[in-house]
Design a protein around this nucleic acid. Sequence first.
RNA 1: CGGGAUGUAGCGCAGUUUGGUAGCGCACCGUGUUCGGGUCGCGGGGGUCGCAAGUUCGAAUCUUGUCAUCCCGACCA
Length: 575
Amino acid sequence: MRMSGLFVQTLREFPSDAEVISHKLLVRAGYIRKLANGIYNYLPLMQRVLKKIEDIVREEMDAAGAQELLMPFVQPAELWQESGRWEVYGKELMRLKDRHGRDMCLGPTHEEVITSIAREGIRSYKQLPINLYQIQSKFRDEIRPRFGLLRGREFIMKDAYSFDVDEEGLDKSYKIMADAYKRIFERCGLEAKMVQSDSGAIGGSVSHEFMVLVNESDENNAGENDVFYCSKCGYSANSNHAVSLLNNAVTDGGYNKADIIDTPAVHSIEELSEFLKIPASVICKSLIYVIDGKYVLALIRGDRTVEETKLMNAFSGNEIRIARNDEIDEIMQASGFNAAIGFIGPKGLKNIEIIADETVKDLKNFVIGCNQTDKHLVGANWGIDVELPSLITDIRLVEEKDKCVDCGSELKVTKGIEVGNIFKLGTKYSKAMNATFTDKDGQEKPFIMGCYGIGISRTAAAAVERHHDEHGIIWPLSIAPYRVIVVPVSDQDEVQMKTAEEIYKKLLAHKIEVIIDDRSERAGVKLKDADLIGIPYRITVGKTIKEGLVEFKNRATGETTNITPDEAIEKILAL
RNA sequence: CGGGAUGUAGCGCAGUUUGGUAGCGCACCGUGUUCGGGUCGCGGGGGUCGCAAGUUCGAAUCUUGUCAUCCCGACCA
């Protein structure tokens, strides 16, 4: 490609509306342009990168036995009503009506469509297992799109769906995908950690995410997820799913009798702990949530934090938020109390489900709200002063230095960008949508499904997050838009121009993806642009051509050597 | 959904306080100059000042509304 004809415009300054480095660099280097909030044009350089990633994904998916197809971007509401997600998916599902007033939506994911395909096309166990995938745009009307391609509303995704006769088959399909994913990210030049995860709105049981870990010391690090991991045994999980052993905190408040005492204007656990001169771990914290419109009181030890996804899952919910003040007032009134926030407790509350984290069951002589403003109950014990809820499960957020459930070592935390995920769906969709096949025994059975996603555009952005310097992007060779750029320093110098042209043509003849910067710009401009755009190798033809030498530069290492044009070509061919 | 900020040429910004015919840098076009890390000069094109209503002789500037964008938050009792 000739730079003079390449459709790209590099900017001298970063765009003012970008926050994270991948967004800033992709805009400044002329890869993307925003069309609307969370919606981007992928310009020619970007399209090449995306195609590179897609090709790697295709090769590995095909090698893993999956078959590519393509499903519609606009989907009829009926399918979503069948699966039950039309009601539960929420505002992220972009709904629209066609000219006849029929409800439609833009596909945020394709479980419904693929299930409809399977139920029409797969009749017998003999056709199983099968794995179908597509690479396509998705649309999710995110609450707050941000970070450029990392959290757009429209984005490119590879989504695959496996169909098996039984759980054992699903386990195999799942493993095959996990292995394929590892190879895909490795080939993209990314280290992606496979971590346990919550299966979220898609449903199902087991799921893992592939996380590109980012440096937390980076001020604008784009990691939106916390990953807890054990460096000893390898356990790792997203914070929304991570578990840990109960730590041995003080759980006995030391009070020798139960008593309601004055705690004026002491609202927070921290203040209460200070006021009573007791550790936070002997206070039972009471939090009111709204899960799918229903009130839930969650009890957890004062030194710990509720993990909302876990709490929501305990009630199989789809939407969770902490209750508003007016809702709390309503609950209080309904139960005959008038307590302010900070003094709430489980005792005597009506019309509310109560759930306790495992951390509270061992509490003795503890402190808890008693639904009277400016008072707390101290020296409480379960079964005597307060009823221990029957629903006790793990709803706490893991913290750094908690102990690993597998090996007892200390857990650590890091930030990650989720570039892929794999789910065991089971029969969630096949049952809901009545998608069945006939098994060996002649019985109709629902498909056992799995689904597997990779954010193509997000992977590209994650690569920029991981591979850049103060001069610009440093693409891994495998996904770079071009492998090499040939830069004649001066377009006035005939020998330089002629040599550069020769190198360019020879590389082209070898089917190397190469750019020649044939613009009549000064050397500084061309070199800056080459760095910014991030082409992995640069062959600079300058004054040293008099001695028959060109400069060969590795963008990533900065290493330069002066060699002959033929040697430079050899080096490129040897990559 | 709440709070804050910002909308002026493709990009980055000034001008708004104190109303008086719209500016700078980059980019773009022409021209000369320079030529290994974003040369320098001269000349030029491009903007209904987000949109709408209002106040006024006169509005980028004041008022109201509205839309958009960015950031933060969305309650740990």
